[in-house]
Nucleic acid binder design. Structure first.
Lengths: 200, 200
DNA sequence: TAAAACGGAATGAACGTTCATTCCGTTTCG
DNA sequence: CGAAACGGAATGAACGTTCATTCCGTTTTA
């Protein structure tokens, strides 16, 4: 069932424009022009702008997920898994700046809040890769005993910040620097050797 | 002195509305209504909306800066300074959620980029507290030898992310957790394995 | 040829900004 | 001293623009 490629063109155009200028700097008319379709055509594929925005987010997630999972195995040690996932994520963002800029916009919109809540508290399965990883790490004593949101902040905060700085040209990440940065994130997350014993 | 308090009312109303609904969800007419002034009155104090937004940012910065510096001394060891500044910042954000939400909006706007560039590369002096701290730390071997933007990412990334999660109710920070979170940030920033000198 | 897809002008709502007018405290005049 | 004149702060209706969405005539498809 070959879906009409107009839809793809609309999605691509929306990604490009919104990544560059934000939701409010991307009128439907301009998305249509860039996609090479009429303004009304968009509404044959998406009920309204909000739906287009949400659907585009879902498509990006579906693209990123496989990139993260390439060569990933829950059998490996926690530290190794963390370094692999983190590096893959930072690498993906750096290689796909449009995707990253879009995700950033999205996360800072009202939608983003719901999305984050789902990531933190949602059912196991989808998107909970890091959650399982952290829970494993806490259980094995390799990761600090902190609330999940704090661990997420320690891991993703620097990651997003670093990706933004790279895309804005404030710093240039190569493979070496990616490794160093993710290793530093791990230093923040991992239980320090000198930590006094805590009762269980 | 005795500046007209209309200006203050406008600034307060703008902060409240924008923190809650973002720049685009805060029409001038509504800011005026909330401030108890006419729509036109705003333009007696601010040339246009952009100026209002920028000025409000500057006012917030001026409020936060003193809170960070309370009891701060460049004479103390790097680690101690980091923990103090970081804790003060996180504490301030948690105690002033409106300020934080506004800053977040601002940083994710085109303005924010210029602002960040200034923080990273600007002249010494204003706002470069953390930059000097990191440079000191690198020089003394206490902090990882990474590009400044990466160190900023490691320190501020988690901090902002944590503050957001607290405000959104995903986690509850108390003094203990603040200390643990900032200590974890330090773990990410501090040079790990090889210690050329030991400080207490 | 009938139906579905399409294009882009039309529509109406929402917004930032302007400006003719009102309001009010101060100064000047008789 | 009281009243009239003054001036700038304040006002909010009105304006022009921008935008998401709709509508309908045209083109493509089956």
């Amino acid at each position: 069932m070959a879906k009409p490629d107009k839809r793809d063109e609309i999605v691509r155009a929306a990604l490009e424009l919104i990544a560059a200028r934000g939701f409010h700097g991307s009128p439907m008319a301009e998305i249509a022009k860039r996609a090479g379709v009429g303004a009304g055509t968009i509404y044959r594929y998406f009920a309204n702008k909000d739906v287009l925005i949400a659907e585009l987010y879902r498509e990006l997630e579906a693209r990123i997920y496989p990139a993260l999972l390439a060569g990933y195995s829950t059998e490996r040690p926690v530290r190794e898994r963390f370094l692999q996932l983190g590096s893959a994520m930072l690498r993906y963002f750096i290689e796909h700046p449009l995707d990253f800029r879009y995700l950033e916009q999205f996360h800072n919109s009202p939608y983003g809040v719901e999305c984050r809540r789902a990531k933190l508290f949602g059912e196991p399965g989808k998107g909970s890769l890091f959650r399982e990883l952290f829970l494993d790490g806490i259980a094995s004593g390799e990761v600090k005993q902190l609330p999940l949101p704090v661990l997420f902040a320690l891991a993703f905060g620097p990651l997003f910040s670093a990706a933004r700085d790279h895309i804005l040209g404030f710093v240039r990440f190569d493979e070496v620097l990616i490794g160093q940065a993710i290793a530093a994130c791990w230093d923040g997350v991992k239980r320090s050797e000198t930590l006094p014993a805590t009762e269980d």
